[in-house]
Amino acid sequence: MSVNNGEVLISVKDLKKYYNNGKIRALDGVSNDIRKGEVVVIIGPSGSGKSTFLRSLNLLERPTGGTITFDGIDITSPESDINKLRQNMGMVFQHFNLFPHLTILKNMTIAPVKLGKLSKEDAEKKAMELLGRVGLADRANSYPSQLSGGQKQRIAIVRALEMDPEVMLFDEPTSALDPEMVGEVLEVMKQLAKDGMTMVCVTHEMGFAREVGTRVIFMDEGKILEENTPEQIFTNPYNDRLKTFLQKVL
């Protein structure tokens, strides 16, 4: 098991997501604690529920049952202000989802400015600084359609960072990219991990999981079948399903 003894940031208890009155169980009782500074990598075959699990963490998917506690607040309860909580959870999507009608700078500043988190000047200053960090400062006034996939995903990452989140959720961030662009995005994510950001990442990049992950979770059929340090998962898997999965992907 992981030896991270940091403060628990997200606590998931018995999370369930059913479709068709329980005939399809995308999540079937998942419990896990995500601690500050951890880089949790979720792997598993497609349809295993790993994306549903990640999207449940900021309630893009409404769970059928179970609780999610973030910063000590039960976000699944009707009383919690999910919009406020989402400001502290950055999310990066497989298909980038940049806003095509806004420039890169606007893409990054619209949320903090409109939500009153930063003034326009501060937001733009911060955005330029973040863009500089990912080497895209010269594209500030471009539109998303003028960028390559790898550039779009790097923008999507810094757009989420602009909100100063406590945790970053990555939903297969490199799956929609040309192979030659995967590296530049992973590089940004590695840097982010090095800076101490708490990250939860669904990915098929086993190299990334092994190198950057502090903990790897293997999911199938809506359940966590095994979780351990990357070394243990990749060199000494216990679960049979994990063994066959790793044989296929490695």
Partner: peptide, 15 residues
Amino acid sequence: IDPGQFEAGRSLGFN
């Protein structure tokens, strides 16, 4: 409009 646009907006904290 791609549902992803909606999700991206919501994930940034917009209601």
